[in-house]
Amino acid sequence: MDWESWVVSTLNRALAYGTPLLWGTLGEIYAERAGVVNLGVEGMMILGAFSAFAVAQSVGDPWLGLLAAAVVGAGAALIHALFTVTLRANQYVSGLALTIFGLGFSGLLGARWVGIPLANPLPKLTVPGLSQLPVLGPALFQNQSYLTYIGLFLAVVLWLVLYKTRWGIVIRSVGESPATADALGVNVFLVRYLCLAFGGAMAGVAGGFLSVEYRPAWTEGMTAGTGWIVIALTIFAAWNPLRAVWGVLLFSGLYHLAYRLQAWFPPEFLKLMPYAFAILVLAIAGLRGARQLAPGALGIPYTRGEK
């Protein structure tokens, strides 16, 4: 086995397996940047996976399926927004409820779609020209998903928006210090609603990717914990869209390697590494004195003009 095959397969699989993680993480980063934790990612993803499959199968167009997933994901996130932003409920509990509900509800609705392959899965993309490059061609530009490239592009755009535009300042200020933002005339509630809905739409597409492209079929609980990995990656990435790309690649690269290295390492250890890594990264950041990574008002409901 030559080194080339290891590089190619690891990168190629890291991108493919990482795509739903990237979409979900980018969405959750925006929600948390606005100050709201949404532990309902798994629930929004599974609802997205189901609706993408059902629509794609009924209409025959996987893109419409993904659109439906985005809408459903955003809708589910709005429930969370209603509870946590308007009704100021505990964000962790509301998110857990969304996950429990989403897993159950998608299973109920999806019962009659089990065991049917998707007729028109999302086509794969091989980039002309670039795919002919040695090593990098097969690693990055052959048989990838459109969503992989869109996701990477979005990571850059979302980074620019967050750090280089007025919108970004608004979102970050809402997450850091909503009272100050409010005093400056920012509609804190609206920003939080929009960021949560955006995060939900991204999670919906992440789930949709699983059912119309990654494994074009619907089965009960097919997200299999991906949503929780997204939550870990959000923190691992220190709420930064570009760092999310590296975090996702590291995580999914390790996940793939767990199967290539199985003969030498117990797979359980490779599988627990990303989680241990997430803690380690935060601990190292802490050692360096960088304690203020998290948005200041993360997890705290905002109450206008009251104390």
Binding site: I79, S94, I100, F101, L103, G104, F105
Partner: peptide, 12 residues
């Protein structure tokens, strides 16, 4: 799955 929907609703 009814169980999940049931607990989810109560929580909501």
């Amino acid at each position: 799955q009814v169980v999940g929907v049931f607990s989810g609703l109560i929580l909501f």
